[in-house]
């Protein structure tokens, strides 16, 4: 992984997240851009690269959200480690499987963030049923593009 390309991906991901959460938000729903990019990075380049990018993306997201600082960083790190370790046992190359992977893990990530809130902020950080059910769909639609971008920048 070349550092410059990784940096471009990192900052491009942050810009994409800002764009998606402000300009592409529909009825308050927004895709988990940084989460799906972390999955893409882990699938494309392995757990180490995925965790490096995911941890700092998570920290950036924590700074923006203003809740349980460190929860996103931990969640993204765990997701990158899991997918990076298991990527050889599953199909992460085809767009449908990428969409399914994103749709399945996004709710788990939401629940993890909620539990982190109940542990460290004494309240479950629940985004609401609409966001819980529909954000993963939105994220799944975005997954092929995110995986493709990660593979393009993180060529092994």
């Amino acid at each position: 992984m070349r550092v410059l390309e990784a940096a471009v991906l990192f900052f491009g991901g942050l810009a994409a997240h800002w764009l998606a959460s402000t300009q592409l938000s529909v009825w308050g729903l927004a895709p988990h851009v940084l989460f799906v990019l972390t999955l893409g990075a882990a699938a494309a380049a392995g757990p180490v690269q995925g965790m490096c990018l995911g941890f700092f993306w998570g920290l950036a997201l924590d700074a923006l959200s203003g809740h349980v600082f460190g929860a996103n960083a931990l969640g993204f790190t765990l997701a990158a480690y899991g997918l990076g370790t298991l990527r050889r046992q599953m199909d992460t190359a085809s767009p449908p499987s990428q969409a399914v992977l994103a749709a399945a893990t996004a709710p788990l990530y939401t629940l993890f963030y909620g539990f982190a809130g109940s542990l460290f902020e004494h309240r479950f950080l629940w985004p609401g049923w609409a966001a819980f059910l529909l954000d993963p769909v939105y994220t799944a639609l975005l997954a092929p593009f995110a995986f493709s971008a990660a593979r393009r920048f993180l060529k092994p």
Binding site: M51, F55, G58, D62, V68, F69, G70, A71, A73, L74, T77, L78, A116, L119, F120
Partner: peptide
Amino acid sequence: FSAVALTLL
């Protein structure tokens, strides 16, 4: 990373 994140939490 987990240690750092948990410490921050």
